[in-house]
Design a protein around this nucleic acid. Structure first.
Lengths: 209, 209
DNA sequence: CCTACCGATCGGTAGG
DNA sequence: CCTACCGATCGGTAGG
């Protein structure tokens, strides 16, 4: 039985990705050394340059892939939703699931943004902005269809994203809750937030006196 | 006019703290070099060792001070509150204010925990746990006095802290909102969360099927 | 994918 | 607070 995929080099590349995320999580970009990374996958430091052209490029490829993954999952989740409320619930489910199940990658991909050079930084934050923009669009969609009234969708989406993303900082896979429970908790919280007049009023810049 | 405080050395120490937080925020612990830090305050690298015994110690002193500051402000904020609801509102106000006005320090003091050696890590996380424990105690206090019913104060406090802390990741001082507005928004959200039956029910592990 | 090596730079120290 | 310096180690390259 011959395999056309899964050659040694491909396995090494996958192993480098896994080891790299781990090193970035534990030591940060400057703190991880290429010699350690090479050791993790059983090759010599010089051989790493068969897999990427330099350390910066390695970081970029990892962060880029995380963004592409979450964007891809979100596209599937939102596909066919023709109703702002269901779209919102789908967004919350997708975001919370991803951020609880891939905590290390998600944390690294925000923490190590600062280590990207200007061009790569721009590329990754552009991806991130398009991802976050989807939530703002859903909030605006719900406004237009009069499902809810969000006075400042820009800031509200940031606030909602912030509370969802923070799940990755405290959720523990071995704890009392499963990811599906977290999804329900956040869906309920966020629906309450949007459909509750008092909370909505407080999200208005008009109240700034 | 003679000054007994504010000698050159003291000013340098303060300047080192400010520059250090900035460097840690932009480059991380491994990424910042002591030569850069020395340059920021106008001295030579070797002279830094008049102010701390090594780089690790410098990091520890910065993170420790941030924790002591927020703990100190929280003690003042909660002093004399004899009612769970008012204590909760005071906690929210203090936490949100601190995390919006000192964003860099707060972000660094969580991001760079990993760069502390085991003893220093233990010391700082012990401070952090005592700080976060105050919120859990308030939730339990409200349970006892029947102000609200929080089934899992441990997890609820983590969730609430997470949504409050995330304000530091998106709040911009030049934006539409002032910190006092953010405080009101979060106070309203969190009160809704605690006093709303549906949300409270969803925070119960009993619903895990 | 390895060996052998480079220039640069790091944290830290000695001795003023 | 400075000068002068150290051993170690880093990212990266040449040439197989």
């Amino acid at each position: 039985m011959t395999r056309t995929t899964g050659s040694k080099g491909e396995n090494t590349l996958k192993a480098l990705r896994v080891a790299g995320i781990n090193r970035l999580y534990k030591q940060g970009f400057s703190g991880m050394t290429l010699r350690e990374l090479a050791g993790d996958v059983g090759i010599q430091a010089g051989s790493l340059y068969n897999y990427f052209s330099n350390k910066q490029d390695f970081l970029y490829e990892i962060l880029r892939q995380v963004m592409l993954d979450v964007i891809g999952e979100m596209e599937v989740a939102l596909d066919g939703e023709d109703n702002p409320r269901l779209a919102l619930l789908a967004y919350v489910e997708c975001h919370v699931s991803f951020h609880s199940s891939r905590q290390q990658e998600v944390l690294v991909s925000t923490t190590e943004l600062r280590s990207l050079n200007p061009e790569n930084y721009k590329r990754v934050t552009t991806l991130r902005d398009s991802y976050e923009g989807r939530l703002r669009e859903i909030l605006e969609w719900g406004n237009a269809e009069e499902y809810w009234t969000v006075i400042d969708p820009q800031v509200s989406s940031k606030l909602i994203l912030g509370m969802m993303t923070s799940v990755g900082t405290w959720y523990s896979a071995g704890g009392r809750y499963q990811i599906s429970d977290l999804v329900k908790i956040y869906q309920t919280m966020i629906e309450n937030l949007l459909f509750n007049d008092m909370a909505a009023a407080n999200l208005s810049p008009a109240m700034v006196s």
